[in-house]
Each structure stands twice: as C-alpha cells, then as structure tokens.
Simulated assay, not measured.
Amino acid sequence: MRQYCRLLSSIKILLLILIFFVIILHSQIFNKNKQWCDPGKPLWWFCPWPDARTICSWDDHFPITDQQIRSPEYYEKLFSSLPKIQSPFEFNNSTFVKCTETSIDILIFVISKCSHASIRQSIRRTWGNTKLLKKYFPNIELKLLFLVDIDSKSEKKIELEYKYHKDIVQVNNLPEQYEYVTEREAALYEFIKLHCKQTKFIFKTDDDIFINTFLLLLSSSKNNFQYLTNNKTIYSLFGFPIEYGLVVRYGIDQIGQRYVITQDEYSCPRYPIFLSGFGYLMSFKTCSLLINAYQTDSKPFPLSDVYFTGLLPQMMNIQRQTIFQNVDYLYQTKCNEEFFISKKNNPFACAASNEHFIQKESDGVKSFMNDYNLYWTKLIEKYNTLKINT
C-alpha cells in the first residue's frame, strides 16, 4: 500500500514538473521569437489571451490617429474629408421602397437571398408580422424591410413580390454569392442613410434566423429606448458580444471555409470583440458612421460581422454592448421547440434551419413556415398577456 501511495506521489510530482516545463518552454518561445500563435496549427489552444500581439487594428487603412483624440465624432469628420473609394450601390427602381413615415423607432432590416421568397413570406406571417406586433406595442413605430441581391431568374418574381408587400430593397450590382457579405451589409447601411433618415434604431439580421420580436420590442418600450442610450452616446451598438474569437485559417467543410482568412487579410490570431451575426441593434448615427468608413476603405474586411461590429468600432472607440441581459440564443444547433417553452430560458434568437450550419446549400424552395409558426405560436402564448396590459 505504501509503495502504491509513493508511486502515485511520484507520478503527481512528475506531471507537475512536466506541466511547469511546458509552460516555461511555451513562454520562452513566444518571448524569444515574438511569434504569434497560429490557429491553423495543432496547438492553437496555446494562443495567449488577447494583447497587442494577438489583435490587429484597422488603423493602417486610414490616416493615423492619435489614441487620445480617437472617438466616433473625430472619425465622422475624418471620413467626410476623405475621398469615397467604394462605388455606390445601385438600387432597383422597380422595387424602390420609400420610408414615408414621419419617424421609425426600429427598422428591422433582413438580409435575404433573392430566391428565398418563401422564407420572406414566412417571416412576414410570423416574427416579422408588423401589423400584429403593432397591436401589442402601439407606441412603437416599427418597419420591416428585406434587402435582396440580383438574380436574373427571379427578376419578375421580385417585382411582383414588391407590388404585394412594398418591403423589398434590391441591389442591382450585388451578386448572390456568400463571398459578398460585407458588400451586402454595406448596401443595407447605404440605403438607410440615403432613404430612411428618420430611423432611430436599426436591427440587422438574416432570413435564416428566428427573432423573438416580442422580447426585442418589450425591452425597447420599457423606457422609450432610453436604456439603449444610457451610455451617454448617440453611437450605440448592441448585440451578443463574441470575445476575442480565433481567426480561422483552415475550414474542414464548406461552411467552415466561408470564414477562412488569409495572413494578408488579417495577420493576427484573434479578432477584437465583435457581435454575433444573429442580429444586432444600432443607432442611426452608428449606421451612418459605418457606411462612411466602408466607402473610404480601400480594402474592407470580407467578414461583415467582424468588420462592422469589431474592427471598425474598435478603431473608432465604439463600445459593443450586450443587447439584453439573461437571454438565450442558439448558436451551434438549430432552433428546437424546447428552446421556446422552457421556463429556464428567455429565448431571443436562433438559427431556423440546419442549413445555417451544414454544407448543404438552400435551394430557395423549402418553406420555413412550419417551424416558424411553431415557434411563433409558443411565443404568442408566452407574451399574450402584453395585449391586456398595454
């Protein structure tokens, strides 16, 4: 027995020595060679916690700014003095939406593929049903728009869809491929800046995401949007922060390959804090500032969420804040019924389809109506008392 105990003690001591040796070796390698960790290599989990070596700034894309005077107000003046490098977007006159409202409290802008007509219709009938939501929240001016790309096969269908719903914004010089996500989001911001200036807040999301709009509007209406500006700045940006995510250098499947970034595009191993693409809320001033930055940037970053809610806000000193406390969103798996009925959860957003995570591409034919209606019904049951209390 004593020998067994001695053996265990010896093993523990050896393990501690080995761990200590590995830590020292790792530290010496980084300090001596000043090398950054590479997430594409096997021991990516050795990457040190974020510091000046692990996060790249976007400063070199614009004139160098003194750290002490860095602010959204400063960059607003700077961008107005710089030439616009990016070409403006061309919006289809046949599907041109006019924001005729005197004031819009929240503009929900959904990025959608041109071929996803059935998904857009599912959203209009469920979580994007503005007429129904107006009954629950009569004091909030809400507007829903869809931004779609160009597809010659769907041209006539899009025009017909626009005539029925008046909520389509189509970009003529924007291809449907996923590789243009940054351009797609920039087009959304440009349209708002030019044609929806009366908007107070913009909520951006995608058409394969289910949004709990009851929760969004309930939280927004409590203090007439004052909770969104309690940071004493008009440059607000809210969502679900992702802290210092590792840069993807190698993707094992088609979905993973979407997020691959080269050393030339971004040399550091970690990103600054950015917001989940499930959806984020921003003020009109932030929207205007972001599109001004994009238009004067010679080489915008190819991942829109990282670019618009991480790299640019980090540079301009715009704080990324949590949109709601104590809420849930499904990031790794598809929405499920339990997510919307569990008393422990306060669901806000989730991926409405497995196609958000797996390799198969959507054919644009499948309707999300069954799933959307199931989740929507559960939410109506949960928040139905609002109609009585408001």
Results as ranks from 00 to 15, higher is better:
90 E>K: 03
254 Q>M: 04
228 L>G: 09
180 Y>A: 07
81 S>E: 07
209 I>D: 07
18 L>D: 03
200 K>E: 10
124 R>N: 11
303 L>D: 13
159 E>D: 14
274 F>R: 15
36 W>N: 14
359 Q>Y: 00
301 F>Q: 13
117 A>M: 09
338 E>A: 13
254 Q>A: 05
351 A>H: 14
234 I>L: 02
90 E>G: 03
79 F>Y: 02
35 Q>C: 08
311 L>R: 15
218 L>M: 09
251 G>A: 05
44 W>G: 04
224 N>H: 05
165 H>Y: 10
76 E>N: 09
353 S>L: 12
156 K>G: 02
211 I>A: 04
113 K>W: 06
107 L>W: 05
20 F>G: 12
366 K>S: 08
202 I>V: 15
1 M>A: 12
305 D>P: 12
173 N>T: 04
72 P>A: 11
112 S>V: 04
39 P>N: 02
62 F>W: 07
59 D>G: 11
152 S>E: 12
331 Y>I: 07
94 S>F: 06
290 L>T: 15
349 A>Y: 03
201 F>A: 04
219 S>F: 00
281 L>K: 06
272 P>I: 09
167 D>L: 09
47 C>L: 02
124 R>H: 06
32 K>W: 00
225 F>Q: 07
141 E>H: 05
136 Y>C: 04
321 Q>N: 13
85 I>C: 06
241 P>E: 02
385 T>S: 10
15 L>F: 05
253 D>S: 09
224 N>M: 04
352 A>V: 12
350 C>Q: 11
169 V>I: 12
321 Q>G: 10
332 Q>V: 02
38 D>I: 06
378 K>W: 02
225 F>I: 06
239 G>H: 08
133 L>F: 01
80 S>A: 14
13 I>N: 07
23 I>E: 08
246 L>A: 14
210 F>K: 11
264 D>F: 03
30 F>D: 08
65 T>W: 00
68 Q>L: 11
212 N>Y: 03
79 F>V: 08
139 N>E: 03
